[in-house]
Amino acid sequence: MFKHIFSGMLLTLVLASPVFAGSAADDIQIIDPWAREVPPGLTTSAGFLGMKNTGDKAHRLVAAESSNTGMVELHTHINDNGVMRMRPVEDIPVAAGATTTLQPGGLHLMLMMIKKPLKAGEKMPITLIFEDGSKKDIEAEVRHFSMEKMNRMKMGH
């Protein structure tokens, strides 16, 4: 009897759990997550990554958080004839089978009120939260600007 109730509870937990197969967190594959080292005296930086949707349903990144920041926001840059306008976005969509890339000059995780200065080579823990409430813990590699060569930038004229 007791065993039955217990296994019933377990089943409910598994079913309700966001890590159950088919969740956004399961479908989304993270590619090369990194964060920019912060110049001395500053507490804002940006995080970048690719999100590949391996599922057959569209997903959306709706929020992010990190124990090393006071706040993480989802931002984009609008390139308006060479003027870069940084603005928050409500979510970042990833179409089924597609990859959405957060990269310099465009979409980024805005890391704000950073508690411990980010030093190149360290890992920055970040939790990504998707539209169905499922979460994905990632570790972004902190990079010095000289290590960013491979990160193309779409900005300027």
Binding site: R36, A46, H77, M84, M86, P104, G105, M110, F145
Partner: peptide, 8 residues
Amino acid sequence: SCPDVCPT
């Protein structure tokens, strides 16, 4: 405090 465009 420009997090991206200036440092890039």
